[in-house]
Amino acid sequence: MINPTEYVPKSYHARVSTYWWLTRWVYLKFILREVSSVFVAWFVVVTLLQIRAVTSGPADYGEFQRWLRSPLLLTLNAVSFFFVVFHAVTWFNLSAKAMVVRVGGKRLPGIAIAAPNYAAWAVASGAVAWILLRG
């Protein structure tokens, strides 16, 4: 363990601004990525309400659908969609950086890890849409 010397010079300690995430575009992008989780949680709440409405009968489900058609909910869900897509794209791109896959001693490039993620995204989305939309 390194011990600092006995002599401690006077120094200036800057405090990090509360708004540090506004000081650079990269930091703002980071905080928006983290805030996307709030919209993730929001739509889980919507889904829980939806499960309750579906299971309590056609009348309740009709009421739930009317609620979703209100301008406030449509706006909120449009914003949520934007944030959740932002989450998906950043998540897939970052997972390529966080994972090291070696084939024949060479590290696979990020795109080789991100591409299957995007493919899985397309397949999962297609499957959900097909189940809900078929006859």
């Binding site: 990269v26 930091y27 966080a98």
Partner: peptide, 9 residues
């Protein structure tokens, strides 16, 4: 670490 990623940049 919250993976801001700026260290790498």
């Amino acid at each position: 670490c919250t993976f801001v990623g700026e260290c790498t940049q």
